[in-house]
């Protein structure tokens, strides 16, 4: 799952090498903290958060299979 978040994040930014994903488990919930280059923030979030919303939708599809709740947060 972490790999999926990394793959999608890297596909969207100009500096894929700078993408870092941290997996934080909190009971039934897993949080993925995505760190990107500051000038890539907009590229991964998109206008009105449209890109990150699509990313979350795809990652949630993966989570349904595992029966877990996932959150994807983009952090600076």
């Amino acid at each position: 799952m972490k790999e999926l978040v990394e793959f999608l994040a890297r596909a969207l930014v100009d500096h894929p090498e700078a993408v870092q994903v941290r997996e934080i488990e909190d009971g039934e919930t897993v949080i993925y903290e995505v760190r990107v280059e500051p000038d890539d923030m907009g590229k991964i979030i998109g206008k009105h958060g449209r890109i990150v919303r699509a990313l979350r939708t795809v990652v949630k599809a993966a989570a349904v299979k595992d029966g877990r709740r996932v959150l994807v947060e983009v952090v600076q």
Binding site: R50, I51, R53, A54, T57, V58, A61
Partner: peptide
């Protein structure tokens, strides 16, 4: 999910 995936592949 299909719409999201299609959007991401295009972006």
């Amino acid at each position: 999910t299909l719409d999201a995936l299609q959007y991401l592949v295009n972006v």
